[in-house]
Design a protein around this nucleic acid. Structure first.
Lengths: 338, 338
DNA sequence: CTGAAAGCGCTTACAG
DNA sequence: CTGAAAGCGCTTACAG
């Protein structure tokens, strides 16, 4: 391995001077700079990240901590991985991914190693022990999601309220008045305190008070089959039920489309189905293609990483950001029958 | 931050001795060991990963390098992230994820920083410039996938031949003789040299020679709509075409199910459709659920990381492994009509 | 503008 | 079994 010492000897200067040109941290005469740069090119020098980290007390590594779940991560979650990695990369940072338990034990252990400068936290619960761990250890962090109280905490999240209202607007514009909100994942650990569910459900309650709609919230499990899903959401065949469903989970939405058809309902002739916070690829998987609110996964991953890096670099902080999902027209929504 | 020096002072020993008990690398009297352990607990000492890495010349960090593609990563690819991270974690290693260009430039740059001890390479092309980069820099690496020639190269991959034969067995047992192999992603950069496609196509050609089947290979693009897909695969309505399709891509398989139905073919009454190398969640998304060969994503991620770590730890090497996909019954395959 | 030197927090021969 | 010391490859006051 060629070190800074090698370059210094080759160029006839001190390693300090080499360091100054490598990092562009102090003025250096054009002549010496050129000599050093030539030497570096000739020897194929690359600055050692580990030594740099130890000396500068900054590793320029970020961690993305995600909980190990029984179910696979959602597509949107996966978008965080790649978008956060890309954002970090663009700033000269690395991203490690940390599978950690929800109680914060493993996170405390990992943070203690001082391998990373900051942590990005995914799948945040309303009261998240991992947040306390990070605060106690004085590790800079940013949330992709929100705890119950986020005063003073750096975070980015989906704007669930705006998203829901946009979705409801679409359906009421079509003439729907009786809506169902479908939440997937009932019975799962952390389900009741999972931000997206809690916030969407609350906004739905609120909307029923403020707007001319009649609603029903339906909680379903991952294992409910399509027909059972459809019956829970729209009622038994032939009965009067909601004419449209807002579904907070891609897979559940797709299975509901299937279930509706199998229980004799045309989509969107008889019932409309709209996916809330879904990945864009999801749309084309159903027949007809699912109308959905597209989750801003890539944006959130990018914003989260960027916000964290700004803290670390002591740059202007990025204010907390709530990003709404964007409407993507499909073929599963239409005016209600009659 | 409490350092080894602090612990040594507190316990009245040298930092060398503290190091010996922390790493369990040399015998230490039970008495001193106990004193040191008490001090560590009292002071809340944690070994600094960066200093350790610099001194021991091993960072215990692995990189997972994946190409930045226009399309989102497949579900199976994503399983590599989490399974490799879990496997690394179980061995006390960290996993960084590196989005890198296919030409190997960025990889060379990153590897030069000496932040990682080894690299796991995903989405391997038959002739992959990134492999040369790793060889030239003498960085230990393992492939998830295969180059054209893998002699002496540590790798794990799907056994495409076995997978295809298993799938064909299933269809011929049902009575099918006329099969279509559908490859998604035509026209994409690297499509023609993408191992999974090349190997599956070759095995399909071979199977037509060796077995009593008649085949057709159909290459389709991501943007083909369902009806067009169905026509390309099964021919125009009413014509004699393949009675079953083997589809190498989840999304394409699902859209083909939709397309078949829309063009007046019952699935599986008129045509059978089978997904090759698909994620398990994919099955329930179509109606009826897709019959598929389940890709061993988690196994491959785990094996790849483990193989790499064994190289680094100079343990018994893990031999190259080809893992077949496993059959998962669904409702899209049945005997051909008549 | 440039250099000598201390120091980042560990590991690891080498002595004893 | 334990310790003193060199060294990993950098950064960064401090002098000049």
């Amino acid at each position: 391995m060629v070190t800074m010492k090698d370059v210094a000897d080759h160029a006839g200067v001190s390693i300090a001077t080499v360091s100054f040109v490598v990092n562009d941290t102090k003025p250096v005469t054009p002549a010496t700079r050129e000599r050093i740069e030539t030497s570096m090119a000739e020897l194929g020098y690359r600055r050692n990240a580990v030594a740099r980290a130890l000396a500068s007390r900054r590793t320029r590594i970020l961690a993305l901590a995600y909980p190990v779940l029984e179910r696979p991560l959602s597509t949107a979650s996966v978008e965080f991985f790649t978008s956060a990695a890309a954002a970090a990369s663009a700033r000269g940072y690395h991203l490690v991914i940390w599978p950690v338990s929800n109680d914060g034990r493993e996170l405390a252990e990992l943070v203690g190693q001082r391998l990373v400068d900051g942590v990005l936290l995914m799948e945040v619960q309303l009261d998240d022990p991992r947040v306390e761990v990070l605060e106690r250890s004085a590790t800079p962090f940013a949330l992709i999601g929100r705890t119950r109280d986020v005063t003073g905490i750096c975070h980015v999240d989906i704007d669930f309220e705006a998203t829901l209202h946009h979705a409801i607007d679409h359906l009421t514009d079509l003439g729907h008045r009786h809506l169902a909100l479908v939440l997937g994942g009932k019975g799962e650990r952390g389900y009741r305190t999972y931000g997206p569910f809690v916030r969407t459900a609350a906004a739905f309650e609120q909307a029923q008070i403020e707007r001319d709609i009649h609603g029903r919230t339906v909680e379903v499990t991952w294992s409910d089959d399509p027909e059972s899903l459809a019956r829970q959401v729209f009622g038994e065949e032939g009965t009067d039920g909601p004419t449209a469903a807002l579904v907070l989970n891609d897979h559940t939405a797709l299975r509901l489309v299937t279930g509706a058809r199998r229980t004799g309902r045309r989509v969107p002739g008889d019932v409309s189905i709209l996916g809330l916070s879904a990945a864009p690829e999801t749309g084309s998987l159903s027949d007809p293609p699912l109308t959905l609110m597209r989750a801003p996964g890539p944006e959130l991953g990018h914003l989260g990483a960027e916000a964290l890096i700004r803290m670390l670099e002591a740059e202007d902080p990025l204010p907390p950001r709530l990003v709404p999902c964007t409407f993507e027209a499909g073929g599963t929504t239409a005016p209600p029958p009659r």
